[in-house]
């Protein structure tokens, strides 16, 4: 009944996520996180959404994972792991996760989505061109709001990077430029 590719991708995603949490080496955790995100891109491919899958890879693996690895490399890792984790807390966390996942799954099964599942398999996948067209016509206010939010955050980032209350020496002027251009 279950698709073997789906099971493979699911095992990869969940397994990499568990490795990302459990490993003692931060750098391996970051790599496992990237693998987990690749697995999510695999889910998008299985759901006939290659456009989203490619952006998942380009943004999450190509940018976010690189950023995390970059940060991990520049941080002294020993300082972060001085306390041993509590077994009780771990068990409670796993139990909480299970409860949330089971209740979410039960909600989805109880909702109307489950009844249509058989039809979803046969129905035509929605083309990304169609989504783009809808985005620019009927849903254009959403697009405008998203664009404004992104522009606002970029301007805020530039304003933070160009702070003039930090005095720099003539030598540090270069550094300032780095911080801004990155």
């Amino acid at each position: 009944m279950a698709d073997p590719v789906f099971i493979g991708v699911a095992v990869l995603t969940v397994g990499a996520a568990i490795v990302a949490l459990e490993t003692r080496e931060l750098i391996y955790g970051a790599i496992a996180l990237a693998v987990s995100m690749l697995g999510i891109a695999g889910f998008f491919l299985l759901l006939d959404a290659p456009f989203v899958a490619m952006f998942q890879i380009a943004v999450y693996v190509g940018a976010v994972a690189v950023l995390i690895i970059f940060a991990v490399m520049l941080v002294r890792t020993q300082a972060l792991f001085t306390t041993k984790e509590d077994k009780k807390r771990k068990g409670a966390g796993i139990a909480l996760m299970l409860i949330i996942m089971i209740s979410l799954g039960a909600l989805l099964l109880a909702s109307g989505l489950n009844g249509q599942f058989g039809n979803f398999n046969d129905s035509e996948a929605i083309d990304f061109r169609e989504i783009g067209q809808q985005m620019l016509t009927y849903y254009s206010p959403t697009l405008i709001i998203m664009a404004l939010t992104l522009a606002g955050s970029v301007i805020a980032a530039l304003a933070l990077a160009r702070r003039e209350d930090i005095t720099t020496t003539s030598d540090g002027g270069e550094e300032q430029q780095h911080g801004r251009t990155d």
Binding site: I27, M54, I57, A58, V61, G62
Partner: peptide
């Protein structure tokens, strides 16, 4: 074309690692 750019995004990751 998107797939090409998505795959090219792996190179900085490999170089950094």
């Amino acid at each position: 074309l998107l797939a090409v750019f998505a795959i090219l995004g792996f190179f900085p990751l490999i170089a950094l690692l």
